[in-house]
Amino acid sequence: MEKKLEDLQILVNNLTYHYPDGTIALKGVNLNIYSGEIVGIMGKNGAGKSTLIKTFNGLLKPTTGVVYIENDEVNNVLMSKLTKKVGIVFQNPDLQLFANTVEDEIRFSLKNLNFTKIELENQISLTLEKFKLKKFQNRTPFTLSGGEKKRLAIASIMCRNPEIIVFDEPTIGQDAEGVKFIRNLIKEKHSEGKTIIIVTHDIEFAIDNIPRTILMADGLIIADGPTNKILSQDQILNIGYLISPQLIILSKFLIDLKIKVPEDVYIKENMVQFLGSYFKDKMGITEGGKP
């Protein structure tokens, strides 16, 4: 995707952040994120990832430097305006669920958005429908299963319809079904033109779903580029406490064997196709036959 200046949506310039206890979490971060991008933020715990995303919706005020969300400098606008634009979905749903019913949980998220009564009820019902929570409408959130709670927590941000969506470790502890749900949600929001930021350790998820990755270490951004490039460079991996996804390791191995591989075999379908024709070639089998 071509990046146009007028599509610039988040601009971070020379951002530093010092916690009251003296910890310096960000030491001069520069970053541009364009409208409609999907961006991953990786790096080991304590690298400053959470601190950075919390400056986007006003939870933390920059110590020095600036953060622009569209045309608003975060220091000069009300937090309510920022949280409307930037929705952060935190990892642990228990941190936010409190209401008597699932429906009320959604209602709470829509409270300060100036909806009319009809619009409000409409939006609640739409959200419940979309996240398959309708049947739990009148149940208390605490009796939901882990996966359902997670869905409700995500719904309680999505119903606010933010332009920029930030996911904090969305795939932790998720099985294939859970991961698929997150993947589809991201695809859908991407097609709606939303900007999506994903803080994650999950390299296999990142390589499949995130085109651009930022790597943070020690309060700084130390790499920013296509995810497959970031996740194949040893020095970057070492600093970020990361490892390569399996198919990148495999494609490097193939290259070492002097086998000519297409660049995009880090995607599963492409690897299947490539190895398929490679094997057929080597073993001289015809379509449909076993060696």
Binding site: N57, L59, M79, G87, L95, F108, N112, I157, R160
Partner: peptide
């Protein structure tokens, strides 16, 4: 720390 995380999570969904 947990209390702070709860405040952050609620503020992120428009709690004032």
């Amino acid at each position: 720390i947990e209390a702070q995380n709860i405040i952050d999570a609620q503020k992120s969904r428009g709690y004032e």
